[in-house]
Design a protein around this nucleic acid. Structure first.
Length: 398
DNA sequence: GGATCATC
DNA sequence: GATGATCC
């Protein structure tokens, strides 16, 4: 048997041995050096690809570890990829960021191409499209033909003045791949987004399946607050003074539920006060941006509204916030949120704002009373004061 | 495949 | 000099 005969089980056994012994002792025992270039990533840990492959051979029945063989593309690396393992090329691709903070930082470091001193939108369009797909529960990976078919009209439509109407998906995807933000199914020979024929030729030849890395996909799919932070990071890096509303609408990321978690599990938090403060901060940030100089009129921004709504629901702890009522919500919805109506105490059209301070969660009964009841004129000042008190209370750490 | 542009 | 892009 030879190296290409190794199995997934044998590789996992080698990984386990390396975990037990520690990296250097493991390399010592089998006579390997640290990898110069290709690393196998498994459960977030990086391993020396050639050493793991060689040791894995020793876990095949009746075989012993291999030592003198080729490590790179076409050899050990290819054998590992064929078994479904992720191999990182440290010469080119950066490791995939795992946490939301890492992903946001990576987005902030993306290298942009500019046109007339403004960033082109290509990478932003690709990322937002993929986040929209993740949110909608579509598959993480998509074949190249469908990727191009979906992206071409988007890239065509959403571009800066002077950005050419080519709609090519290969440049931004190559760039995102090298930044650790696009999975091309373990490929390690992806060209940089530089020059024309090399890039075009590589994608035409390989037509790779691709999509967000698993970590980013999971955040975008399940965690509403992470989703908002991704959108904000992309907007800040690329869109800046570009009006993002049409683009966000086109990719399915512009509605009041965009900050909602996929299910109640993601909503669980051991420090609700800190989480409330975090959401309020995001709302305020978005309010400052969307009401800034680039908007001539105040718009009812559904993302901000959704964030504010999620903060108020958290604050409510599942009970009507009318102090005269304080009853638990009659039920929860499919996302696990309490069935409360989050209401602007002062209508937006009357100068109210999408801020948790000026919003209140009401049970359906109280909401009807507040809207149509004869006592609504007495109720509204009470609710205004209550919202203010609760808000202050939740922002106070004791 | 090369030339060019504008950053980092 | 490398990188993201475009044009020829």
């Amino acid at each position: 048997m030879a190296l290409p005969d190794i199995t997934r089980e044998a590789v996992l056994a080698a990984i386990a041995e390396c975990d037990r012994m520690g990296r250097d002792a493991f390399l010592d025992k089998y006579g390997f050096r640290r990898a110069l270039r290709y690393r196998l990533r498994y459960n977030g840990t990086l391993y020396d690809s050639k050493a793991i492959a060689g040791v894995a051979h020793g876990y095949l029945p009746g075989e012993s570890p291999l030592r003198d063989f080729s490590g790179g593309i076409g050899h050990a690396v290819t054998a590992l990829q064929r078994l479904g393992f992720e191999v990182i090329d440290e010469h080119t691709a950066r490791p995939t960021p795992q946490t939301i903070d890492e992903v946001v930082a990576t987005i902030g470091d993306l290298q942009r191409a500019l046109v007339a001193s403004k960033p082109m939108l290509k990478q932003a369009v690709v990322l937002l499209w993929a986040i929209g797909r993740a949110r909608a529960g579509e598959d993480r990976l998509l074949n190249w033909a469908d990727t191009v078919a979906a992206l071409t009209p988007l890239l065509d439509e959403h571009r800066r003045d002077g950005e050419r109407r080519q709609g090519r998906s290969d440049y931004p995807i190559a760039a995102l791949h090298h930044a650790g933000l696009w999975d091309l199914r373990g490929r390690t020979d992806v060209p940089r987004a530089h020059g024309d024929s090399a890039v075009k030729g590589w994608f035409a030849e390989h037509t790779p399946d691709g999509g967000l890395p698993q970590s980013v996909y999971t955040l975008a799919r399940r965690d509403g607050i992470a989703r908002i932070r991704l959108i904000e990071a992309i907007t800040a890096r690329f869109l800046d003074d570009y009006d993002e509303r049409e683009l966000l609408t086109a990719v399915g990321l512009y509605d009041k539920d965009v900050a909602s978690d996929e299910d109640a599990v993601g909503n669980a938090t051991d420090d609700p006060k800190a989480e409330y403060a975090r959401r309020c901060e995001l709302v305020a940030h978005r309010e400052a941006r969307t009401n800034g100089q680039r908007r001539t009129r105040t718009v009812n921004d559904p993302i901000r509204n959704g964030l504010a709504r999620s903060a108020v629901l958290l604050r409510s702890e599942g009970r009507c916030e009318n102090p005269k009522c304080a009853q638990p919500a009659p039920d929860i919805n499919d996302r696990g949120e309490p069935l409360l109506e989050v209401d602007h105490i002062v209508q937006l059209s009357d100068g109210g704002r999408d801020l948790p301070l000026q919003m209140i969660a009401l049970c359906p009964n109280c909401h009807r009373v507040k809207t149509y009841g004869r006592t609504r004129h007495q109720l509204i000042p009470v609710l205004t004061q209550t919202a203010r008190d609760l808000h202050d209370q939740w922002l106070t750490t004791d």
